[in-house]
């Protein structure tokens, strides 16, 4: 079976998805993702040259509503589940060097 997704590909994709993975995991995911992708190659045998991609099952167009401000959650509530906070804000590690 050809490996469609190398360990390098896995590391690239993991980085895009903001996942840290070890070399050992990269090896495992390379095999598993390759076998899923190989399995999915069967889709290429279907002639879709005249088929529009389907994004939604119901015949719905944009759904609009009035843009009116409403009470939702307070700042205190928004911070209630935060792992770290300071001065009424979410705290994160420094972003700038």
């Amino acid at each position: 079976m050809s490996k469609k997704i190398s360990t390098e590909d896995v590391k690239h994709v993991a980085n895009l998805a903001r996942l840290a993975i070890t070399d050992e995991e990269a090896e495992k995911y390379s095999e598993q993702l390759s076998s899923i992708i190989n399995f999915s190659e069967q889709l290429s045998e279907v002639d879709t040259s005249k088929v529009k991609p389907m994004t939604h099952v119901l015949d719905m167009k944009n759904v609009f509503r009035e843009d009116e401000p409403k009470d939702w959650i307070t700042k205190e509530e928004a911070l209630k589940n935060a792992p770290d906070q300071a001065d009424g804000q979410f705290r994160v590690p420094s972003i700038l060097e």
């Binding site: 994709v13 992708i37 889709l43 290429s44 279907v46 879709t48 088929v51 529009k52 991609p53 389907m54």
Partner: peptide, 19 residues
């Protein structure tokens, strides 16, 4: 969804979903 694979996998699957 990544660049270079989107048409072959994601879009293709959306088309087969239609069928």
């Amino acid at each position: 969804l990544s660049s270079g694979y989107y048409d072959a996998y994601y879009k293709k699957a959306q088309q087969v979903r239609c069928l």
